[in-house]
Amino acid sequence: MTSTPSADRWIGYLNTVLLMVAGIIVVAPTLWMVLSSFKFSHEVTAYPPTLFFTPTLTNYVSLWERTPFIQYGINSAVVTSASTALGILLGTPAAFVVSWTRITWPAIVTLLARMAPGTLFLLPWYLMFRQIDMIGSYWALILTHAVITMPIVIWVLLPFFDNIPRSIFEAAQVDGCSPIRVFYRIALPLVSAGLSVSSILAFVFSWNYFLFALVLSNSDTKTLIAASFNFIGEGSTNWGALMAAATLIALPPLVLAIIVQRWLVSGLTLGAVKG
């Protein structure tokens, strides 16, 4: 069946409109957040919202003056980088083994762990880490965040490993490779795009994860996302500072995504389509 040129043109218009609507829905809250970070607190909640205003850096200055923001940033970087590395370290061989053996239940278990609400783990973990005197340590946060990063790594990498023709692994075996060598000499270089995609996704999810850091950290190890909660008070909320903090927190994943945008998109599709 073929469509007429005018029908094609209308479908093109419709696509453009739908994409614009989707773009507005996605970008509007971010834009509102960024603009609000340059407003005074009372302007943030003003109704109707003010589109034209005199920008101020007060929120950013107060963020620096009133909180150890750099320290929180370092904490976030340490926890996120380490949990991402741990997720990659454990998740990559796990995904390879699941793909190699075609035994999928371990992957499903990790997915269930990822899908379960964080509160399910929170109390047992709190008790466990308190027992071993690790509450407030980086390790408590890194280990718990690996529950978020590892399933992401496994499930992003699985189709990448599945798409490598099995005969390549078999050729490596015939060439004298043990299964471990097949993994790091053959399989790993062939899923480099998947590794970058899963690293970025794991980094973003860990960076933004709030709950574990709120409960398992202390003032020395508090992450940015948990620290931003300080601006929400019982009586009043410092919306301007909160928006400034949110803007700064959103920056690293955003910059990361922009830098590797092309790789990210091609990686996400390559994993699913046989080359």
């Binding site: 023709p165 005969s167 390549i168 078999e170 050729a171 490596a172 075996q173 015939v174 060439d175 004298g176 490779c177 043990s178 053959i186 270089p189 062939l190």
Partner: peptide
Amino acid sequence: VPAAKRDIAMVFQDYALYPH
């Protein structure tokens, strides 16, 4: 004896060359 220790060489239907 695993494939790696048999000292045989195999040419596969799809050649199975290492793409990287």
